Amino acid sequence: MKKVIILFSLIMAVMANAQNQRFIYEYKFITDSTARDKQETETMYLEVASKGSKFYSKDYFQSDSTMQTMVAKDTQSLNINLGNFKFKGKIRYNIEKMYPDYSTNFFTTLGSDEYQVQENRKQNWKILPEKEKIGEFNAQKAVCDFAGRKWTAWFTTDLPIQDGPYKFYGLPGLIVKVEDNTHSHSFELKGSKKLSSGYEWKSTKDKERYNPLVTINEAKFKKALTDYRLDPMKSQKQMLAEGTIVEMRDSSGKVLDPVKASRDQETKAKANIKRQNNILELDLIK
C-alpha cells in the first residue's frame, strides 16, 4: 500500500508541474500533393492548465493580438489597408480540449465567419511495444486512424498528461511526436516553458468579436467548408450587394475599386484553395 501511495504522489507532483506549461511543437506540413518538395514549417504551442489545453500557432497568435490592438483604437470605421498589415503564420485555427473529459472544440474562420466546431470523433489508439528516444524523452509507439489518415504517435509516460498536439489525446502520456503515413503532416515536441504565475486560461469563444461565433457540429462544418471552397468570396459579395462599404487600399494607400478588388481576391483565393488539396483532415474534402 505504501508503494502505491508513493507512486500516486509522484504522479500528482509531475502533473502539478506540467500544468500552466507551454509545450512547443514543430509542425511540418505539405498541403499541396502536387508539390511535395514544398514542405512548410510552423511553431505551434500547446498550453496546458488545470481547466484544459489550447493549441495554436505562435506567429498567428502574435499577429492576431496586434490586429486586435489596432482595431480597438478605431472602432468607428473599417478601413482595410492591404499594404499596412500582414498576418504572419499559415495556421489560422486553434483547438481547445477541456479536462477531464477532453471535450474538443476547433476554432477557425471561413471568409468573414468564425466557427466553433464541436469535435465528437475519438482516436482509437493501438499501443505497440516499440520504444524509441524522441528528443530527451523515452517514448512508446501507438497508431490510429483519424480524420482520413493513418497516424503513428510516440508518447512518453515521463509526462503523464493524456494530451498532445492538434486534436490528438488519449494515450497514457504526452504525445511528443505524431506523423501520418504519407509524411505530409507531423508534429514534434521541441521544448517547453513554464507559464507565468499570473497565467489565466481563457477560451477563444469568450473573446470580443464583431460577428457572432457560429457553433456547429462536424457534419455542418464539412458542408460550410465545401461551400466556401466553391465560392470563397460569397460573404463579401453579400456585403457589397447589401450596400456595405468596405474601403480597401493597396500598399501605396491608394483606394481600390471594391468590385475589382473583390474579383482579384476571388481569383487568388480559388488558386490557393486548389493548392489546399492535402489538408490535415482529408475526410473534410473527400
Rank of each mutant, 00 (worst) to 15 (best):
K150G: 00
F106R: 00
S262D: 08
I216P: 05
R92M: 05
R275F: 05
K54D: 05
Q21R: 15
Q118D: 08
K90Q: 07
K205W: 01
S63V: 05
M12K: 14
T152G: 10
M12A: 13
T267W: 10
K3E: 14
K38L: 03
I161Y: 14
R229N: 11
S50A: 09
A72R: 01
L195F: 04
R36F: 03
N277F: 01
E114H: 15
D158R: 10
E242A: 13
T104K: 02
M12W: 07
Q236A: 05
T215S: 14
N138D: 15
S112W: 09
Q162P: 00
F61G: 07
S65C: 01
L46I: 02
Q265W: 06
R36N: 03
S112M: 07
N217S: 12
W154G: 02
P165W: 00
K73G: 06
A219G: 05
I273N: 13
R22V: 04
Q68S: 05
Q162D: 09
D59M: 08
N277D: 10
S196L: 12
Q76G: 10
I273S: 07
N81Y: 14
K274H: 06
Q236H: 13
V4T: 14
N79A: 11
V178W: 00
S186W: 03
S192T: 03
Q236V: 09
I245Y: 00
R149A: 12
L110K: 06
Q140Y: 05
E247W: 02
S192N: 12
P258W: 08
E281C: 10
K167F: 04
H183M: 00
Y60T: 08
D158G: 02
F85C: 02
M67A: 02
N81R: 13
Y56Q: 00
T215C: 08
F187D: 02
M12F: 11
W154K: 07
